[in-house]
Amino acid sequence: MPSPYRAIFAAPGTLAFSAAGFLGRMPLSMMGVGIVAMVSQLTGRYSLAGWLSATLALSAAVLGPQVSRLVDRHGQSRVLRPALLISVAAVGGLLVCARQGAPNWMLFAFTACAGCIPAVGAMTRSRWAAIYHGSPRELHTAYAFESIADEVCFIVGPIISIGLSTVWFPEAGPLLAAAFLVVG
Score class of each variant (00 low, 15 high):
M1L: 13
M1R: 14
M1Y: 13
R6S: 06
R6Y: 04
I8C: 10
P12F: 03
P12H: 07
T14C: 10
A16F: 11
F17D: 06
S18C: 04
L23M: 06
M26L: 13
M26C: 02
P27S: 03
L28H: 13
S29H: 09
M31C: 08
V39K: 09
Q41E: 09
L42H: 10
T43G: 08
T43I: 05
T43D: 08
G44S: 04
S47M: 08
S47W: 05
G50D: 01
G50L: 00
W51T: 00
S53N: 12
S53M: 13
A57S: 08
A57C: 07
S59Q: 07
L63D: 08
L63S: 10
L63C: 10
G64F: 01
D72Y: 06
L80E: 15
L80G: 07
L80N: 14
I86A: 14
S87H: 08
V88N: 11
A90T: 00
V91P: 10
L95I: 07
L95D: 05
V96A: 13
R99D: 15
G101C: 06
N104G: 05
W105G: 04
L107V: 03
F108T: 02
A109C: 10
C113G: 15
C113R: 08
A114E: 03
P118C: 00
P118T: 01
A119P: 14
G121I: 00
M123Y: 01
T124F: 02
H133S: 11
S135Y: 06
E138S: 10
T141C: 15
A144R: 14
I155D: 13
G157Y: 04
I159L: 15
T166C: 11
T166W: 08
W168T: 03
G173K: 03
G173V: 00
A178I: 00
A178N: 10
G184V: 00
G184M: 00
